[in-house]
Nucleic acid binder design. Structure first.
Lengths: 162, 162
DNA sequence: TATTGTTATACTCTATAACTATA
DNA sequence: TATAGTTATAGAGTATAACAATA
């Protein structure tokens, strides 16, 4: 391995030496570390979850409409994507028989999306598969680390839905 | 808003009612919540960081090679992507004059990638831009929440590099 | 023959812009 | 005229498979 000695310079983004954040640092470094951690984990999750029946987007949308029917626009806003992307996802879900579209009664421009029985079943089956990799990693952590991640999930959730 | 009352059923994935995780629940729900939080945040980060000069992948790779030259294969393994994807990223970086390729001295099959001065400058400039959105959100959090995210970043980092 | 990297090709997800229908 | 959704098109990023060069 030529030229790969860990130099631990301040420019290495702390990936080779995450412990240098131990002393409660400022907001900037935290944002950098957090961004890298999240992007890498998400890439990993995407890769691990691939070749399953439902894509991450499909899964997420399917889960969102369980409480009741949602319009395409509401789903798009909730998932922080544009309407055409949501149309595409709903198309796939509908083709697979997992959701149905129905016109709004008050406002016929709206298209309400509802989950079917097959959709609920697929979601339940996919759920365990989807989180398999992450659950395995999480299970290997200390209870303290799990507690931290549990709170972090809540914080990130709030943060990214604003 | 027809049919969007929060029912808080056990199938709603806790996105409408995250507080139900307050009582230290099992590993499965945590993995589900965490996956959703990470995927949503990553999508948001990707969207917010768009239209900058460096893509998330380019940025991450550029940062990785700062400590010294790395081979394409090493970078691919580190970033958890396949070799062709890394080749593509390195091509873009090279076209932009941010890295240079040079053949390995011991093993001429290897292609070592090194950062240029322009690359270091671009990285420094991009770094503040890249984390702008996240830093703003993080700054708005309580010190306690920041402490949690700081630890979470470390945990996720270790978790996804294994 | 095995390994490193590249090229060729295709797929997924996303976005913006233009269009249809309803209000 | 404004809004909800769809269609058309394009771009970024990834993967697998086939190939070239080197070990």
């Amino acid at each position: 391995m030529p030229g790969t000695e860990p130099l631990s310079t301040s420019d290495a983004q702390g990936r080779a030496a995450p412990e240098r954040r131990a002393r409660g640092a400022g907001v900037g470094p935290l944002a950098v570390d957090l961004r890298i951690a999240i992007m890498r984990t998400s890439r990993r999750l995407r890769a691990e979850a691939a070749s399953r029946s439902l894509s991450p987007g499909q899964y997420s949308v399917l889960a969102a409409i369980i409480p009741g029917s949602m319009s395409v626009g509401q789903l798009a806003e909730r998932e922080q994507i544009q309407a055409p992307s949501m149309t595409r996802i709903v198309n796939h879900l509908q083709d697979a028989g997992l959701v149905i579209r129905c016109a709004g009664v008050d406002d016929k421009r709206r298209v309400l999306v509802q989950i079917t029985e097959a959709g609920s079943a697929a979601l339940a089956a996919a759920r365990s598969k989807r989180t398999e990799w992450l659950a395995k990693r999480v299970a290997a952590l200390s209870p303290e680390d799990r507690r931290i991640l549990r709170q972090a999930a809540r914080i990130l959730q709030e943060m990214s839905s604003k």
